[in-house]
């Protein structure tokens, strides 16, 4: 391509005027020589005036520090006064901008005319990229937290069930042997009382273990886990739950089973807590290579967007858990009619 300086400078001017990147030119002493419209747009008015007036280090008014290896926002070893400008070909900086507060930018700062000491400073807004990254990070963290929580629950639950409860059972059996060793009725009555206490304690421990994570979920799958969970709810809260399942004891990925169990647990507990119903229906089925769970109550219901009666974290948590396995939760509710929660996860 033949050199065409006119054309090139026209392109450069267009880029300077229309680029979404903010471009500043500074002289050797840090006075502003020029800045493009994108740069003028992000600066607060008083800072902009100073920049245009060419005041010393006017950019410092807006600068909130750059990110170094040791700190998120620092002025130590400032790029503006650095003796090694080569280090600042790409770095992150925080600027106080017009209307948006302190925003992270990716910046380059280098000399384009070493004779006259003219340096160019270019900024690209990082907000969107940062949000994407943050979201990604959050999702990964959430996945790890949930996984760690489930694993730890599984461990404690097994420990309680296999070790603590077993030893306690041995103690109960040993107490039973007492009646062959003495005829003293007082001793036997006391032993009977102790046996009752231990048996209830054993029950408490089994309940604890179940609440943490039911062994049946890992050993026998969703249906078995749901059945024993619903039975316990009926026993402790007097609310009956009708389970209709057509998955025929099929087993799924452990992560998916956990998501289904926890979301169903949350949805049912919500119905118990807020809907004041006597009956809840739960429907579990596979269709179009998706696994579905629907819980229905005909209770008080709520209006979407109304301030939640609880923490409001329950529904959020359900969605978060579903997202982990690429599933989605749809919640529909009508005042006085009841609430339906529909979870579907691709298999």
């Amino acid at each position: 391509m033949p050199p065409n300086t006119d054309f090139q400078s026209e392109l450069m001017m267009k880029m300077y005027a229309n680029s979404s990147e903010a471009i500043f030119f500074f002289d050797r002493d840090g006075k502003t020589l020029s800045l493009n419209p994108a740069a003028a747009n992000i600066m607060e008015n008083d800072v902009l005036e100073q920049l245009i007036a060419g005041a010393d280090s006017a950019i410092c008014e807006a600068c909130r520090g750059f990110t170094s290896e040791s700190e998120n926002q620092t002025c130590k070893n400032c790029f503006f006064e650095s003796v090694e400008p080569a280090n600042f070909t790409s770095f992150q900086i925080h600027l106080k901008t017009k209307g948006k507060g302190v925003v992270p930018y990716t910046a380059t700062f280098h000399t384009i005319d070493s004779e006259r000491g003219i340096r160019v400073f270019m900024l690209r807004d990082l907000t969107t990229q940062f949000e994407t990254q943050k979201k990604l990070h959050q999702n990964t963290m959430m996945r790890h937290v949930i996984e760690a929580q489930e694993n730890e629950r599984k461990r404690i639950s097994r420990e309680l069930h296999d070790s603590v409860a077993q030893e306690l059972l041995s103690a109960v059996v040993e107490l039973r042997a007492l009646k062959y060793m003495t005829g003293d009725q007082k001793v036997l009555d006391k032993a009977e009382d102790t046996k009752a206490t231990l048996t209830r304690l054993l029950d408490d421990i089994r309940n604890l273990s179940l609440e943490l994570r039911p062994a049946s979920l890992d050993d026998f799958g969703l249906e078995a886990a749901f059945r024993s969970h619903f039975k316990r709810i009926e026993e402790s809260y007097g609310i009956s739950i009708e389970l209709v399942s057509s998955i025929n004891k099929k087993r799924f990925d452990s992560e998916i089973e956990t998501v289904f169990y926890r979301i169903c647990q949350e949805a049912v507990l919500n119905s118990i807590k807020y809907a004041f119903v006597e009956e809840i229906k739960v429907h579990l089925y596979e269709e179009d290579s998706h696994l579905h769970l629907i819980t229905v109550d005909e209770g008080l219901g709520f209006k979407e967007g109304q301030s939640p009666k609880g923490t409001g974290l329950g529904l959020f948590g359900m969605r978060e858990r579903a997202e982990l396995v690429n599933g989605k939760v749809e919640i529909s509710s009508e005042l006085g009619k009841g609430t339906t929660v529909h979870l579907s996860v691709p298999l």
Partner: peptide, 26 residues
């Protein structure tokens, strides 16, 4: 299994409470 239950009630609206297994401490 020595579970705790509301065994007798007088003036009750329904018999639902009698069906519930009460957990120790709860």
């Amino acid at each position: 299994q020595y579970v705790l239950k509301w065994k007798y009630a007088s003036g009750n609206i329904s018999t639902r409470i009698k069906k519930i297994l009460l957990q120790s401490g709860k």
